[in-house]
Amino acid sequence: MHIAVIIRLVPHTDSELEISDDGTDIDREWIDTKLNEFDDHALEEAILLKEIVGARVTALAVDTEGADRLLQTAIARGADEAHKISMPADVALCSRTMTLPVAAAVQKLGAELVLTGVQTPHDIYGQLAPYLGGALDWPQASAVSGIGADNDGILVQQELSGGVSTTLRLALPAVVGVQTASQPIRYVAGSKLRQAMSAEIGTLDTGAEPLEIGVKPTGLIASTAAGDVEMLNGGADAVAAKIHALLSERGLLRGERQ
């Protein structure tokens, strides 16, 4: 089995986000980027599959600033190879615009299973996996929290609401949007990371034209924090008593003995 994992850099939301001058985007000049958390899980799941069924794992990222380092990290994590995907410079990056170049790269590599994170801070509706499924005309499942494999394809664990989950069987080739890996993400020691830092990352030129952007933001507003924080000071007993008083004052205690 050949698995392609699509990983993306997203803004580091711990930094203070500021709105750009034209008011339609965040100011990217002053923020760090990091690997999208769900993509991290997709990568881990791919490596787990590699360990269990002997798959080959290729990490893919759109060629932007920081893509080399991102893909080198994927190699340190256990990916067998990694490529950047070229994109025309003037296209704003989003799930829709990256779909066709990524789909073309997947086909060029001959991968049969595509894993990517279920969503990103940009794409909270989780469109990349369905878009890719559509573009490739492959079956697709999202919000997946664990993948198994047998001779007939893959079995995916899908989270439904209300604490219910279901297992679906997908014939390969297929696209999966991963929510969590079946095991916690492992730590990659710095020594391995350092080794991978010297890996050359090539670029796949697919020649695919991106889709037009369908929706354009007209304005971005920062939400305002709703202040009120009260610090409770004193010893543990005193603090516990204050918490108790606050809860009971607000009628949040049930069956309280009088």
């Binding site: 580091h12 711990d14 930094s15 730590y187 990659v188 710095g190 990371l193």
Partner: peptide, 20 residues
């Protein structure tokens, strides 16, 4: 693990942006 991953990524254990 979180602290070390932060250090790998940002050079500080809190994972705060380097620019901060």
């Amino acid at each position: 693990q979180e602290a070390l991953s932060n250090l790998q990524r940002t050079g500080n254990s809190m994972g705060s942006a380097t620019r901060m």
